[in-house]
Design a protein around this nucleic acid. Structure first.
Lengths: 236, 236
DNA sequence: TAGTGGTCTAGACCACTCT
DNA sequence: GAGTGGTCTAGACCACTAC
């Protein structure tokens, strides 16, 4: 159908990328070098790079350059395997940074959990890395009554694990919403990418066995960093 | 942080779009007209449009123009509500076109279902519309032993419903994989968009109660057409 | 300070859609 | 045939990173 030169370029770059020995550090040569090598302009070359970025094969770190993307991480948002656990289980290196903890109301959380809009929450914001690449920025809002003294804990590990272990909560009713998005300024900065980069947003609302509101969270992932994988038994 | 002109343009266009009376047909003025109106070039203007496209606010129909995108469709891939049903339930108008039915082996289906690579499947390919916009291209591969004479049926309606109703199958074990992608040539053509457009791919593998392979399918959605919404009870 | 990607200009021609 | 988006050229300057 289309024989645009940038699509041809895309194919050739894709081949290049698939050779694991092609570049050091998984870093691509600069746009100017590539443009010259392929006898075209930076604009056209960048169209090809953008295409590969959409395919999830390469990504950029703001103004540092283009890099070959590692395989996607498998992630099951319906389970609480704990980020550190499932990243390690896939042979990757996890890291978590807690950016902020405080207590404050949050309208979307209140709405999702069916609480008054001025309801204060325990709020935790963190950034998570796979092999030293920041791939996820997330915020969690926990109903204080369900987990008093929560904020005195350590949040570099699984929150759900703590809710179960320290407060005996069962996270019985889970509602998930998941959609593609353009990453906003704040999250983009935290992830070291340009605002508007393609992302995947996962929002969860959790109630316990008595349908009491427990937690609401929002995850912003780099779109090419993950593959959502869910296993379900019975009940259609 | 950034005060690029195209981001300012993005803001102004976003405002314009949010006025439901701004354009007829939800169609934006042409790129040349907009570029002139905002005293810039088409290149810069297109950056702003691409931004809004990433946000899911507008979309293009190949060479026809830019359009304001309708709200996303809520979709639960773990259930078989039937496309027609859940689209109607959200006040939208569904339509399904069957593009192809045949019998043939398919390697990804065979691998996912744990069958020999030369295993033939009943194959159905269809395209689905919401309010006359093609939003989904999908292929389904069904194990013939589970549903003989399947291909004599009508596929403009729910396949899972038929598997349950006509063959008494329970779709007990469902494995889902879900990731962002760039839409490939064939699907792009079927959806009337440019190859490389952002998409969301949903792949499902279904076994029955005795863990016998039943079905494998692949859905390619326009990324801004849907919001995955899943409700889960118990068992973490 | 050199090099990178990010942004932008002012054009051009082409393939396709619409009527 | 007129108008649309799709592709492309050949430059330029800027903000930021890495050294």
């Amino acid at each position: 159908m289309s024989d645009a030169y940038y699509l041809h370029l895309t194919d050739r770059l894709r081949d290049l990328i698939q050779d694991p020995e092609a570049f050091e550090d998984d870093r691509l040569p600069s746009e100017r070098v590539l443009a010259e090598r392929f006898h075209t302009t930076r604009v056209t070359l960048r169209q090809a790079l953008a295409q590969l970025e959409g395919e999830g094969r390469i990504h950029r770190s703001n103004r540092r350059g283009w890099f070959v993307s590692p395989p996607r991480l498998d992630y099951d948002p319906t389970r609480d395997a704990g980020f550190n656990d499932y990243v390690k289980a896939q042979g990757r290196r996890p890291r978590t940074e807690v950016l902020l903890t405080d207590i404050r109301p949050h309208r979307p959380a209140a709405e999702a959990l069916g609480l008054p809009l001025d309801q204060p929450f325990h709020h935790i914001r963190r950034r998570r890395f796979v092999d030293d690449r920041a791939v996820l920025s997330e915020s969690l809002w926990v109903v204080p009554e369900r987990a008093p003294q929560l904020l005195e804990g350590d949040f570099t590990h699984s929150l759900w694990g703590q809710l179960r272990g320290r407060w005996g909560l069962t996270l019985a009713h889970r509602s998930l919403r998941l959609y593609s998005e353009a990453i906003r300024e704040q999250e983009a900065e935290e992830l070291g990418v340009a605002a508007g980069t393609a992302g995947l947003c996962v929002r969860r609302t959790i109630l316990d066995e008595q349908r009491r509101p427990v937690e609401y969270d929002e995850e912003h992932w780099l779109h090419n960093a993950l593959c959502i994988a869910v296993e379900l038994e019975n009940s259609v």
